[in-house]
Design a protein around this nucleic acid. Sequence first.
DNA 1: CGGAAAGTTGAGGGAGGTCAACATCGGTGG
DNA 2: CCACCGATGTTGACCTCCCTCAACTTTCCG
Lengths: 254, 254
Amino acid sequence: MHGSAERSAEHAHAEPAPAGHACAHDRSEGGCAACKVRLVSVCAALTSEELAGLEALSQHVHLDPRQALFQQDDRAGAVYNVTEGALRLSRLLPDGRRQVMGFALVGDFLGLALPERFTVTAEALAPTALCRFEKGAFAGLVTRTPHLLQRLYERAGHELTLAQDHMMLLGRRTAEEKVASFLLGLRARYGRIGHESITVELPMGRQDIADHLGLTIETVSRMLTRLDREKAILIVPGGVRLMDIPRLEGLAAN
Amino acid sequence: MHGSAERSAEHAHAEPAPAGHACAHDRSEGGCAACKVRLVSVCAALTSEELAGLEALSQHVHLDPRQALFQQDDRAGAVYNVTEGALRLSRLLPDGRRQVMGFALVGDFLGLALPERFTVTAEALAPTALCRFEKGAFAGLVTRTPHLLQRLYERAGHELTLAQDHMMLLGRRTAEEKVASFLLGLRARYGRIGHESITVELPMGRQDIADHLGLTIETVSRMLTRLDREKAILIVPGGVRLMDIPRLEGLAAN
DNA sequence: CGGAAAGTTGAGGGAGGTCAACATCGGTGG
DNA sequence: CCACCGATGTTGACCTCCCTCAACTTTCCG
């Protein structure tokens, strides 16, 4: 099921640029200062000189749907900033059971902890564009730029509280609560990146949602159907419209 | 069930020192340089001058079993380093369901993310001693000491991968796997702080384990009994002796 | 020694998993 | 343009793992 079609772009980079090409002219269209994710991303911590330093390191990467950016346990050679699209971050147990640790949306940073090896597999859910920073160079910039380190640290702290929220969800909530909570959380995230709407796009499949919430695909489907039947949501192609947010918030209960 | 006996030492600090006293003479017995948790803690990043700076900020706090150090949503006025004992870090849902996010052992750092408010409640499981650092002063030291910030950042990254491990456990493992994994994980942690042994102390109760693993107290008890019956472990007063570690590792499966 | 708290064990039930059939959707080629 | 096909999602029937409820035992302290 994890066929060779999902080869890692991280590997590809070492080879003569088959996918994920990172040629110099790729970063000629405006640069970091004009980057539309700058204000929502970790780059907001930087002065314009620092930004220039960052830009010198940046490369653009594009992924097709289902293409992997990197695999769990790959040596981490770079960090990334998502500028377009969405990715699934997952871990596999030896027997194939999967846990989706989260979804990276526009503005999200991958490789935050600067780990030796990636702790998750990152795969594109849609056509996705990223800013790539060579890890060594980025680490150098970080040590020279306490601002940036501070910002990364704050971000890591934030990730940690999100992880705690999700542990609460996985350990102590019912299936219906999990699904309601997931939809509200996703809506809030879209809101923060400027796409405030009652309609929540779901670029991930039902299986991805199930593996994220610690459920099966059937249970996710049933809960969505139930919420739809009860007029709390409306299932639409490619997403869900939240019809009764107070009710959903009651279910999410936090 | 969460009676007034569990009042927060964080509150107590503002009042005229009822519990958790932090008088100057409390830090006269050796200081940070002689601190036995120094090498396993975040302080290992510091030079001896920096250590002196840290020491000037430090206060000793002692907690009795069941006493709270701080509560979820308390304004975070300090960070802590555990020097003795153990604490339970938990979160409560409005309806009383509880998730234990983890247990802090000797050498562990509380308030790592320097949050505005604590995201968990911390309660002592045994007589516990901590080093307390006023948050403002600590934050000041951090900005003046890139070493330390770097170290905190690494630590936060490590916490993040631990959180991911635990999400995998909560979302995708069976009760037996959860318990086996928990025991092995605890043993590994004790090992890292110098208490390598086949016998794992369990300073927390069954309910705490259950709330950590997303199970009920009865299921935890049954799984321990089953592992005992199968000679994988031996239940002893106050803990568990791991009799067949390969078998436990097979169950934990990762 | 006595009472409360903590832990264990058993019986029964239910939320969610499993298995299987069916529906829907999107792409591809005739 | 539509028939076909595989992938994805939905629905139903049944089952099982874990939860619930309850009784009992053990441990911990005063």
